[in-house]
Write a protein that binds this DNA or RNA. Structure first.
Lengths: 122, 122
DNA sequence: TCCTCCGTTTCGATTTCCGAAGCGGTCACC
DNA sequence: GGTGACCGCTTCGGAAATCGAAACGGAGGA
């Protein structure tokens, strides 16, 4: 139940999700999360750190702990459901920036845009 | 992403979870959800109805649609993770009313306290 | 009739969230 | 040395979400 409370907060799941590809700094992570407010971001980060779901590297980036990785994996079925759900309630797909017809199920498991991104080059 | 928004709201996941054992009326469901406010409850209910995750029976109870069932099942890994998580961050278990040492992993799949509960008898 | 529970709505008070600005710091570049 | 861009993080006023309790009409049991 406590988990439902932790993840029921507004950006927790999203942060967990965006950290899947590797460590991210504060501002880059913020950008990925639809530019959420930094205040709430810090709050969520603190909660997640407290829950030992993420931890902070010496260079101050945030990374999923092993426990966090498991949580992220536990989120996979939900992500897959989300796709089916989207297809059910909105078969047209109002927002197909690029529409690969089918079999675009997206398995972003260990994959992802593995770009830890830090400092310049951006 | 829209799913993260739908389920990122304060009681959505909980409602989904509490409906796992069968249909429930408004007030019983409210009681199960830690007595959340009825206003927010109605709001969540509306959103979930809208998302076709739940629907309303002729006797006005709320029930998971097939799509909702799938969502609930997709939540299972997360629930299992939650147990491991609780054991990790709080190995003492501040709230073990009965503490079966291990192998008490709880598979509340089709199981649950199957008591649809309606009307009198309480 | 009275009492209980039901689903649902309304409304003021509290909490959370947002959004923008600002702080001190590092680093590249000129 | 100066400038500018990015960094992690904090503060603060206003907007939005949530709470909590009261109330409504209706169904049913005593």
């Amino acid at each position: 139940m406590a988990a439902l409370d932790l993840f029921g907060r507004r950006w927790s799941l999203r942060i967990l999700w965006e950290l899947r590809a590797g460590p991210l700094g504060f501002r880059p992570l913020q950008k990925r999360c639809d530019d959420m407010s930094s205040s709430v971001m810090r709050q969520r980060l603190t909660e997640l750190l407290d829950a030992q779901v993420i931890h902070q590297l010496p260079d101050s980036r945030y990374e999923l702990t092993p426990l966090g990785q498991e949580a992220r994996h536990a989120l996979n079925p939900l992500a897959r459901w989300a796709e089916r759900w989207a297809a059910t309630i909105d078969p047209q797909g109002a927002d197909h920036t690029d529409d690969q017809p089918a079999s675009r199920v997206s398995h972003p498991d260990t994959a992802g845009d593995g770009a830890p991104e830090r400092g310049s080059a951006d």
